[in-house]
Amino acid sequence: MGPLNRRAFLQLSSSVLVSGAVNAAIPAVSPLQKAIPSSGELIPVIGMGSWITFNVGNSVTQRKARSQVLDEFFNAGGRVIDSSPMYGSAEDVLGYCLHELDRQQDAFATTKVWTSSTQQGRVQFEDSKRLWQLPRFSVYLVHNLNNWRGHLPYLQELKQSGQIKYLGLSTSHGRRHSDVEDILNTQLIDFVQLTYNAADREVEQRLLPLAQEKGVAVMVNRPFQTGRLINRVKRELFPEWGAAMGCDNWPELLLKFVISHPAVNCAIPATSQVEHMRENMGANYGRLLADYERKRIADAIRDL
């Protein structure tokens, strides 16, 4: 290793700050980060979801395997973790893994309220804290807009009392977009979670520009179309033009497409495998893509 110059030292120390630990896996450069409009706080562009992948029940073997996935995530500079009471044991498993790895401090924990009863929503928040083994959440969302009118006042209360940092709502699969638009226009929220990927681009029309205009951070779910997109592209040879964009594989390229949209703050791909996590976290580094590069990816997907 050559002598450490000032720039290399700064890059290394910032990556140490993000990953929160000094070990051999620390990448030599810092992760790409984007600022949350309502606060200016920086978060890494690649987070992780937990739907299906972290719902492994009480199986100790599977829980330990997920701890390794999470370890890989943190070591690659990841922080944003998304879950919901709808995902079976996922919150409980995440709590277990975070505790096992002693990484509670590093998580930018995001969960949701998922019930049509306003009263039950309060109980659910306490349950989520217990399951994650965390005193507070970074982001708390209304899952699939379920009873959002009933839940939002409580979320505001939670934010004021410091039990959550940011509030918002989630939708997926392009559902109820007109409702999301109304909410963005009329309510004060920090985050919106929605589906966006190189094949599902409807949100580019109205929701992404509107979120940007209103200063609402965007967290993208289903960046791989629940895995379908990956299954389609992985049959194809990785193109040279993809490498020219600084990517090593298809998952990285697909994630770069998502996070390079100016309105998007982070994507939350889900995986149950360390190797896949490694591939996905590649998109946490390098550079963001220009519009013409994003268009090239979308065209390639369309022509598959």
Partner: peptide
């Protein structure tokens, strides 16, 4: 409404 994978169900 499918919140787990087949291998998880089998392990359970």
């Amino acid at each position: 409404f499918v919140v787990y994978s087949a291998p998880t169900l089998f392990a359970m």
